[in-house]
Simulated scan of single mutants.
Amino acid sequence: MLFDDSHRDTLYNIIFQRRDVRRDFLPTPIPDDIILRLLTAAHHAPSVGFMQPWDFIVIKDPSTRRKIKEGFLIANEVSADKFQGDRKSLYRTLKLEGIEEAPLGICITCDRSRTGDVVLGKTIKPEMDLYSAVCAVQNLWLAARAENLGMGWVSILDDDVLYNTLNIPRDLNIIGYFCIGYVEQFQNTPDLQQFGWQDRRPLKDAIHFETWNTK
């Protein structure tokens, strides 16, 4: 199948309009057919050796999300203390999760033993299964934006909170916990850029030709 210019432009627009959403979530439930579409998109991510190492835990129960929020609050205090001065003050003003506000949480795991001990493509770089699971995250994120849903990655969270709360087997790796929901509005710029934490790095500074530092 060949795509025309309208398909191309739509894809780029979705990529450029994707945001890590932590605020402005609405309580509106997400229909199950849309959740299934999101998970189908995530499940079609590329994976090393076609091992498809991911699993998806879908969380709607407010009491479960409340327990996860409690874990975030503890981790957030630990994280805040790692910064000093103005940086610490700014950190404390930032909204960094929407665990209870978003009506849906999804936890993504990685089974590094799936399909056996020797996996095509992992023989030299064994971490490729983790990268594959992160590709599923990106598919989920872009699909969510295409459905006009906000999605945020809650990385300020100890894995033990998710292992214990969600009864995840300890032999699985946790990739992340994600808040998903409809939002009041999508921001024009990323929150951390908007509130002065970090600017976007110029693309030209990230491109090298033939060898490192050849601009």
Score class of each variant (00 low, 15 high):
L2P: 08
D9G: 02
L11G: 00
N13I: 01
R18D: 04
R19V: 04
D20E: 15
R22L: 04
R23H: 09
R23C: 11
L26R: 13
L26I: 04
T28N: 14
I30Q: 02
D32C: 08
I35V: 10
L36P: 00
R37L: 15
R37G: 08
L38G: 00
L38M: 01
L38R: 00
H43S: 15
H44C: 14
F50S: 07
M51A: 13
M51R: 09
Q52I: 01
I57A: 05
I59R: 04
P62G: 01
P62Q: 05
R66E: 12
E70V: 01
I74A: 09
N76C: 03
V78M: 12
A80C: 03
D81M: 11
D81G: 09
Q84C: 12
Q84H: 09
G85N: 14
D86Q: 11
D86A: 13
R87W: 06
K88Y: 05
Y91D: 06
K95G: 02
E97H: 14
G98L: 00
G98K: 00
E100V: 01
E100G: 01
A102P: 06
A102N: 05
G105N: 04
I106V: 10
C107V: 07
D111Q: 03
D111K: 02
S113L: 08
S113Q: 10
R114D: 13
T115I: 08
V118F: 14
G121L: 04
K122Q: 12
M128Y: 12
D129Y: 15
L130E: 13
V134N: 15
V134W: 15
C135Q: 01
A136W: 04
V137T: 09
A146H: 13
A146L: 07
A146Q: 10
L149R: 12
M151P: 03
M151A: 14
V161L: 12
Y163A: 00
L166R: 10
N167E: 14
P169T: 00
P169Q: 01
D171G: 03
L172V: 00
L172R: 02
I175E: 00
Y177F: 07
C179G: 06
Y182P: 01
Q185E: 10
F186C: 04
T189G: 03
T189V: 10
D191R: 11
Q193D: 07
Q198D: 03
D199S: 14
K204V: 05
K204I: 02
D205N: 12
F209T: 09
T214D: 11
T214R: 15
T214Q: 14
